[in-house]
């Protein structure tokens, strides 16, 4: 069963700021979802391989050939704070 502390931890890992009311709400909602999924535990899966893919395809690769992106300026322009050729990002560490 999921507790409010788990929700706080997950919110922190996802860099989300939740109000106490939201924490309580998400604890109930996430708990219900997990409980629903837990029904799967009724099945015996000891002989089933773990699923690592949605479709049964392996070994998709591409040749090592360059195709430079035609519009890198547009990528840079899409950033909230470009500076020259760089992406400027806010302060990383509180000192």
């Amino acid at each position: 069963m999921i507790g409010q502390q788990d929700v706080q931890k997950v919110a922190h890992l996802a860099r989300l700021t939740l109000t106490p009311a939201e924490e309580a709400q998400f604890t109930t909602q996430l708990g219900a979802i997990l409980e629903y999924v837990e029904q799967l535990n009724e099945l015996d899966v000891t002989t089933v391989e773990p699923t690592t893919r949605a479709i049964d395809v392996s070994n998709i690769t591409r040749p090592d050939q360059q195709h430079p992106h035609p519009n890198r300026a547009q990528i840079l322009a899409g950033a909230p704070d470009p500076e020259g050729d760089f992406f400027r990002v806010p302060k990383i560490m509180d000192s």
Binding site: E83, D85, F86, F87, R88, V89, I92, M93, S95
Partner: peptide
């Protein structure tokens, strides 16, 4: 250094 810097510039 990282500590003390007010912003960073990213090159990808």
């Amino acid at each position: 250094r990282l500590s003390g810097s007010t912003f960073s510039l990213a090159d990808y």
